[in-house]
Amino acid sequence: MSGPNDNFDPKQVAALDPAAVDGFVADALAAIEGATTTAELKQARHDHAGDVSPLALANREIGALPPQARKEAGQRVGQARGRVNQAVAARQAALAEGELNAALAAERVDMTLPVYVGPQGALHPVTTLIDEMIDVFVAMGWEVADGPQLESEWYNFDALNLAPDHPARAMQDTLWIDPPTAGKLLRTQTSPVQVRAMLERGVPLYIVSPGKVFRADEYDATHLPVFHQLEGLVVDKGISMADLRGTLDHLAKTMFGDVRTRMRPHYFPFTEPSAEVDLECFVCHGESVGNPDRPCRTCRSEGWIEWGGCGIVNPRVLTACGIDPEVYSGFAFGMGVDRTVMFRTGAPDLRDFVEGDIRFSRSILGGAR
C-alpha cells in the first residue's frame, strides 16, 4: 500500500472512483437479494461486507489519496458500506422469518389425531375411599386430625380406659418397640389421635381421623398386619346415641346408597354404652336369608355385614383428657377402610391391596360403585 503523497497514481486508487464504488454496491445488493437461505446470506456478507470485500479493500486505499481528497472518498465508501450492511440486516430478518414460518409449518401437530399417552398411575383404592369418606365429614363442618404411628402406651391404652392388666390389651395383638420397658408401640388403632385432639384442641370437638394401624395379625385373604381405619369423635354438650345413629346412617347412605344400618350391643372399654354397626347387605338386601336358592357370597346369606364399632365416649376417657363428663358427652366410631373397599367393590383378597400392582388399582376403581 502506498503512503500519502501529493502526486498519487490514479490507477493505484481506481477502486475509490465513484463509478467503481457504485458497482461494488450494486454487486453486493444483487448478491444479498439473491440469497435464499441464511447460509447463502452469510456467504454474501463475507464476500461483499467482510474484511476482504471490494469495499473493505477500497477503504484501505483512502490513505493513498492526498489530504484534500480523503474526506470525500471516505464519505463515499462509508455510505456505500452502510447501504450494504443495512441490506444484509433487512435480508437477514426476512429470511429468518421465512425459515421460522417454514419450520412451524413442517413441525405442525394435528391436535385432532390420536396420540400415544404414556402409562399413568392410579390412586390406591384405599386412598380414594378415605378421601371420599373425609369429604362427607368435612361437608358437615368436621375437621381432619392426624397423629404419629409410633405411639406412647399411655395414648394408645391408658387414656382409653385400658389399664395395664386389662384383657383387651391382649386382644389387640400389639406390636411393641424394643425395649419393651420404653412403653412405645405401633398404634393398634387411630383412637390415640382422638385423645391427642381432646388434649390439644379442647371442646367442642368434631373430628375424623383416618390412618394406618398395626397389629400382629395373620397375612391372609381377610387379615393384614398393616391396615387402615377411619374413626370419628364428637364431644359437645347434649350429645346422645341418636346423634351417633344419624351420623352413621348419613355416612352409610353416602358410601353405599340406600342401605339400612343396625346396632348390636357390644363391649369397648373406651365407650359405654357400646355397639357394633352392621350394614344391610347391599347385594342381596336380605333376600338371601333362609333362601338357599339365592345364596349371597357378600353377606354369607346373613343379610347383614359387620362394618365397625361405636358408642358413647366413656366418662373415664373424658376425665383422662381433662374434660368434665358432667358437662360434656360425646360419641365415637371406627371402621376398617380396607374392608369397606372390599364391601363396595367385591375385591376377594386383602393381599391384593398391598402387592402394588397398578392393574389392581385400575380394576377396582373402574368397578367401584
Rank of each mutant, 00 (worst) to 15 (best):
F282T: 12
S288A: 15
R316C: 14
G303F: 14
G311S: 06
R294Q: 14
G290L: 04
V283C: 11
V313E: 05
V289T: 09
G286L: 10
G290M: 03
V317Y: 13
W304R: 04
R316Y: 10
R294Y: 13
G290C: 04
T298A: 04
C310L: 12
V283S: 15
W307H: 12
P295M: 11
G303L: 05
I305V: 12
S301H: 03
C284M: 08
P292S: 04
G309L: 13
P315C: 08
E302T: 06
P292I: 02
R297F: 10
N314R: 09
L318G: 07
E306M: 10
C284E: 09
R294V: 04
C296T: 00
E287Q: 15
F282E: 03
V283G: 06
V283H: 12
P315G: 07
G290I: 03
R297C: 02
C310Q: 15
C299N: 00
W304P: 05
D293M: 09
G311K: 02
W307F: 15
E287T: 13
S301A: 03
V317G: 09
G290E: 13
W307L: 11
V313L: 10
V313M: 09
E287Y: 09
G286F: 15
C296K: 00
S301L: 01
V313P: 13
R300V: 01
G286W: 14
G309S: 08
L318M: 07
I305R: 07
C284L: 10
G308A: 03
V283P: 09
D293I: 03
R300M: 00
S288Y: 15
V283F: 08
V283W: 15
F282Y: 07
G309A: 13
G308S: 03
C284T: 00
D293T: 06
C296N: 01
E302N: 05
E302S: 00
R316H: 14
E287V: 13
C296A: 00
G286Q: 13
S301Q: 01
R297K: 08
S301D: 01
S301I: 06
E302V: 02
T298V: 09
E287K: 07
E302H: 06
S288P: 11
F282C: 14
G308W: 03
P315W: 12
R297I: 05
C299I: 01
E302K: 08
E306Q: 15
C296L: 03
P292M: 08
T298W: 00
N314E: 08
V317T: 04
V283K: 15
W304Y: 05
I305E: 02
G290Y: 11
E306G: 11
P292Y: 07
V317M: 03
H285T: 06
E287D: 15
F282K: 14
G311L: 12
L318A: 08
P292W: 13
E287W: 05
G286I: 11
N291R: 09
R294G: 07
V313G: 05
E306A: 11
